[in-house]
Amino acid sequence: MKDTLIYLSSSPYQSTAAKEALDLALVLGTFEQPVSLCVTGDALAILSDGQAPSQRHGKHLFKLLDGLEFYDIENVYVRDSEISQLSSPLWSGVQALSDEQWHTMLQQPAAIYRF
């Protein structure tokens, strides 16, 4: 079993990257591969509570977050130093890491896919 990390840094509203990254994460989960997510930079917008994208904006990826548990995706990492600067509340399932923990976390997986 290889641990995979999906590293999200693309804005969910800028391109299809975030959607296709999550699709990959869901398929990994479906195939019983251990997979975690980490969210940084522009991708943090995925986690903002209270967003209401129209169909033209793309899929409502925030809604998918609550469904991750059905794919055995239990870890969604963010960095304390980044989220402390945000004004809007975030999805409650995140694990906030110190910069040091973040760097340790990045060393664990066998594969990291950045989107």
């Binding site: 869901l26 398929v27 989960g29 479906t30 019983e32 899929k59 409502h60 809604k63 998918l64 609550d66 469904g67 548990e69 059905f70 794919y71 055995d72």
Partner: peptide, 14 residues
């Protein structure tokens, strides 16, 4: 809830 049609494994869990 999630805007996605589940595959077998997530369906079983749901």
């Amino acid at each position: 809830q999630f805007e996605v049609s589940p595959a077998m494994r997530p369906l079983v869990k749901a």
